[in-house]
Simulated assay, not measured.
Amino acid sequence: MKKRGNFLFIEKQDDVYTISLTPELQDDIGTVGFVEFSTGDTIQAEEPILNLEASKTVLEINTPLTGKVVERNEAAVKEPSLLNSAKREENWIVKLTDVDEAAFNKLEEA
């Protein structure tokens, strides 16, 4: 199941919620040249999960959900342009667990 929030896609598979940039946001920011992930194992809704510098902007990306960070796309640190990819397996930001199902269900359908 896929939802939208904060110009991000949130895709649920089993108990893992994968957050990635929407194509619209990718177009708006341009080519990503630098990324820095927030630290910490848990994150609250509307807290930053990523800071990025792109050809058109410098942006702080905030999560629409509260959860436990189980994985970050560390490959994007070495190759930031992966976040511009159309491929789901390349353009994700973080993966969360322990997300409130009701909060996820309140998000807009993708």
Rank of each mutant, 00 (worst) to 15 (best):
D27E: 15
E11W: 06
N62H: 12
E60G: 10
L59Y: 13
V99L: 00
G33V: 12
G5E: 04
K56G: 01
R4A: 14
K78A: 12
R88M: 11
T66I: 09
K68Y: 05
S38G: 13
E11H: 08
K3V: 00
I43T: 07
Q13I: 13
I19D: 01
S55R: 08
I29P: 07
S81K: 15
F37E: 10
K2P: 01
K95F: 07
S20A: 09
M1P: 13
K2C: 01
I61N: 02
N84A: 02
T97F: 01
V32T: 11
L59F: 14
F34L: 07
I49V: 15
A86T: 15
D98Q: 11
V58K: 01
K2R: 13
K106A: 09
I19A: 02
A103D: 15
G67A: 02
L83P: 10
I29Y: 04
G33T: 13
Q44V: 14
N6D: 05
M1S: 12
A45L: 06
E71V: 01
A103N: 10
T63M: 04
D14K: 08
S55F: 10
Q26S: 12
L96C: 05
R4Y: 11
K68S: 09
I29C: 02
F37V: 13
I10C: 03
A102Y: 08
V70N: 00
V99D: 00
S85L: 05
S20P: 09
K12M: 04
E36S: 13
D100N: 15
D98I: 03
G5K: 07
I43L: 06
G67S: 02
G40K: 06
D14H: 06
E89Q: 09
E109C: 00
S38R: 13
P23H: 05
P64H: 04
K78Y: 09
S85P: 06
E46Y: 11
P48C: 01
N51K: 12
T42Q: 11
E108N: 13
I49D: 03
N6L: 11
I29T: 10
E74K: 14
I61C: 03
E11G: 00
W92Q: 00
E101A: 08
S20C: 06
A45D: 02
E36Q: 15
V77F: 02
F34W: 12
Q44I: 14
N6Q: 12
G33R: 07
G5M: 08
E89I: 02
T31W: 11
G5L: 06
S55V: 09
E109K: 14
V58N: 00
P80N: 03
P64A: 00
T39V: 11
F37P: 09
D98A: 07
A54I: 03
S85I: 04
E101W: 09
F34I: 04
L82C: 03
L82T: 06
N51Y: 14
K3Y: 04
A103I: 02
K2Q: 14
T22K: 06
D14F: 01
T18E: 10
V77G: 02
L65M: 06
Q26P: 05
P23F: 11
A102N: 13
V77E: 13
T97H: 01
N73V: 07
K3G: 00
I10Y: 06
N51M: 12
E108D: 14
A86C: 03
T31Q: 14
A75F: 14
V32R: 04
E109H: 14
G5R: 05
R72S: 00
I43S: 02
E108A: 12
T42A: 07
